[in-house]
Write a protein that binds this DNA or RNA. Structure first.
Length: 375
RNA sequence: GGGGAGAUACCGAAGCGGUCAAACGGGGCAGACUGUAAAUCUGUUGGCAAUGCCUUCGGAGGUUCGAAUCCUCCUCUCCCCA
């Protein structure tokens, strides 16, 4: 995998680049729709590609391992064949589930024992196993197995957690070098920088991951309960020390404002469930601000969802979408998800364009104001 | 014509002498959601000058210190038999 910077903007750390993968090129900054269980919920791959214009999507190791199971994925010929998405795929390692599954998992040096949220059965994830599973899934970008440390962790715990993540990283890279891709395309492994809300730990973590000379670097453990300004501070601390010639991925972030602020701080890649999950729950992101489509005020508004939107679903009316969401009609969730994703991709595409033109910063300032408005 | 059951807030439905402005569902209204245990979850839902007051449980009377709850009459609905 190769990454080339194509433009930077003076006075900021914003960058535009191109990431070359076996399944196609990815222009950055990029937003990657989350497809946990092998599907970006409610959106067809054709629409993802042609309408949303997604360049890469996510899958999740933990969820795919539990269902459909790696045997099925292997016999399908990998996730690309299984779900029909022929573009690049990034898989999260299950590290986030170490965080989000809270009380149904146990963590020790060897790895994490999970209790399946589906049937309660016990499963052990180790760094080695997680690499093996991601080999079988066939992800273009695999993520290291980490502990996603909560944003409000005590420094002593954050340090202990970071140390564990670092020992696991060593084991991930060992297993990575001992194994081969299964389907004839290249796979990369990205380390994840932890350190909770402590700048000194984040710096240590950044120095540590650089030793692996990976194809890209991820920042994890942000947007997990810490204040927004802390998230930006931590991002700055890390991007200051990362190599310029490798992509930086800020995991799980975020709101449209978070994304613009983080692009300014030198991030190239993002993913977040927000456009799909919040979309299903009635929240629309637009270039004019945020809409809660369930609110009564949209009941009789027959204007398009987003007159500036570039998705074909944007011509549906606000009143119609409200009706669908209120009635729990599945088309409502589909339209809202597709609209939001198309908006997110428009946002990063436009950011890229502005960086290339050298006027990102001023555009960003205006957009941030607009994006915070509740319509 | 005879016998029986019932009428509770926007809807359905508990409650059957005080702790009832009234459980629980649904619907309505609003909020949350950041590497997806989420088409989920939370709050609220008689009125008001609101740590209190006012009006409410089909209608009108009555019993009682006190009634959605007991009694009388009326109105309406449903079921069974002719």
């Amino acid at each position: 995998m190769e990454f080339k910077l194509s433009a930077t903007e003076g006075g900021t750390r914003a960058r535009a680049g191109v990431l070359y993968t076996s399944h196609g090129i990815i222009e950055t900054p990029v937003f990657m729709p989350v497809g946990t269980a092998g599907t970006v919920k409610g959106v067809h791959t054709r629409d993802l590609k042609e309408d949303v214009r997604a360049r890469i999507i996510l899958g999740n190791t933990y969820h795919l391992y539990l269902r459909p199971g790696i045997e099925i994925l292997e016999s399908a010929g990998g996730l690309h064949k299984f779900n029909g998405w022929d573009g690049p795929i990034l898989t999260d390692s299950g590290g986030y589930q170490v965080f989000s599954l809270g009380d149904i998992r146990k963590l020790n040096e060897e790895g994490v024992q999970f209790q399946s949220h589906i049937d309660g059965s016990y499963h052990l994830f180790t760094p080695e196993k997680v690499i093996d599973i991601q080999r079988t899934i066939g992800a273009d970008i695999m993520m290291a197995f980490d502990e996603c440390t909560p944003g409000d962790a005590e420094q002593s715990y954050a340090k202990k957690s970071l140390d564990l993540t670092q020992r696991w990283l060593e084991r991930c890279f060992n297993q990575f070098s001992k194994t081969e891709p299964k389907y004839g395309h290249n796979q990369s492994l990205f380390p994840i920088i932890q350190g909770s809300s402590y700048a000194n730990l984040r710096k240590l973590a950044t120095e540590h991951v650089k030793k692996y000379d990976a194809d890209g670097y991820a920042i994890g453990g942000l947007s997990v309960g810490e204040p927004e300004n802390v998230m930006y501070e931590m991002t700055e601390v890390v991007t200051a020390d990362l190599p310029e010639n490798k992509p930086r991925y800020l995991m799980g972030v975020g709101t449209p404002v978070n994304i613009l602020e983080s692009i300014e701080r030198g991030i190239d890649m993002f993913d977040c469930v927000m456009p799909t999950r919040n979309g299903r729950n009635g929240m629309l992101f637009t270039s004019k601000g945020i809409i809660n489509i369930r609110n009564k005020k949209w009941e009789n508004n027959h204007n398009p969802i987003d007159s500036n939107g570039r998705s074909f679903v944007d011509h549906y009316s606000l009143a119609y979408l409200r009706h669908l969401i209120i009635s729990n009609e599945m088309l409502g969730a589909q339209i809202a998800s597709q609209h939001n994703l198309a908006f997110y991709l428009w946002l990063v595409d436009t950011a890229r364009k502005k960086i290339t033109e050298g006027n990102f910063k001023s555009w960003k300032e205006d957009m941030v104001k607009q994006l915070k408005i509740r319509l």
